Computed example of a mutant assay.
Amino acid sequence: MHSSHLKTLVTAAALAATFFAPTGKSHATESLAAEPHAPVSLAPDYAQWVGKTLVRNGEKPPTGTPADRLVHERDIPKPYRVITPGSFVTQEYNPDRLNIYLDDAGVITRVNFG
């Protein structure tokens, strides 16, 4: 390979590494630093929400459900998205976005960042 081509290739690789290097901090766990696009299985701060019913904005809580078994949508930090069975979701990774998965009854089954 000609030396000018090699120099161009090395420069391009260095620029690409700089451009795609992760910046800033996210809510994702430190163990994911080596794998920035790996899904976080559970958002630790919100693990206690699993098994509780989500009360969507504008809706009334289910009758007979104790308050400590409810999570109100107004209390979810932004950005977030609520994912219901059969719903379509975009595949872009956002380490600061909280994903809240519900079952058919509106019970939270999983919470993660991504």
Rank of each mutant, 00 (worst) to 15 (best):
D68W: 04
L98Y: 03
S3D: 12
Y101G: 04
Y46Q: 03
R69N: 13
E30S: 10
R74N: 08
A67Q: 13
S87Q: 12
L32W: 10
A38T: 02
L102E: 00
G86M: 05
I83N: 00
H5A: 12
L54Q: 02
H2R: 09
P62F: 03
D45E: 14
L70V: 03
A33P: 00
A34C: 05
G86Y: 08
L6M: 09
R74V: 14
A43L: 09
P66N: 05
K52D: 04
V55W: 05
P66Y: 06
D68C: 02
G24L: 05
L9E: 09
P85L: 04
S41R: 07
L32F: 12
P79S: 12
T23G: 08
T109A: 07
I100C: 02
V111A: 05
A38S: 04
S41K: 07
A16G: 12
R81M: 02
V50E: 02
R110F: 07
T90S: 07
D75G: 00
I108E: 04
I83P: 01
N112E: 11
A47Q: 12
Y101A: 01
V107M: 06
G51P: 02
V107F: 08
N57H: 09
S3L: 13
H37R: 13
H5V: 07
A43Q: 01
N112C: 13
K78P: 02
L70P: 01
P22Q: 08
R69G: 01
V71E: 06
R97Y: 08
N57Q: 14
D68P: 03
P66E: 04
T53L: 13
A67V: 09
A38L: 05
P61Q: 09
G51K: 05
K60Q: 09
A14G: 09
F113Q: 08
T11A: 15
G58Q: 11
Y93E: 12
Q91H: 08
R74I: 06
T109H: 05
D96W: 02
R69I: 00
T29G: 15
I100R: 02
L102S: 00
P62T: 11
A34Y: 01
D103M: 03
A38V: 03
S87A: 12
K52H: 10
P77N: 08
P22W: 10
L54T: 04
A67M: 08
G64N: 07
D45R: 15
A47V: 13
L98K: 01
L6Q: 09
Y46P: 00
K60A: 02
P39I: 05
N99Q: 11
D96S: 14
R81P: 00
H2Y: 01
T90R: 09
P36K: 08
G51L: 09
P39G: 04
T8H: 07
K7L: 14
V40C: 06
Y101M: 09
E59L: 07
P79W: 07
V71M: 11
A34D: 06
T63H: 10
H5E: 07
Y46C: 00
L15S: 06
A21F: 15
V111H: 01
E59T: 11
H37A: 06
Q91R: 13
T29E: 14
H72D: 08
D104Q: 14
P44G: 14
A21V: 08
H5R: 11
S3M: 11
A105G: 08
V10K: 04
T29R: 12
R81Y: 02
P61E: 14
T109V: 15
S31A: 13
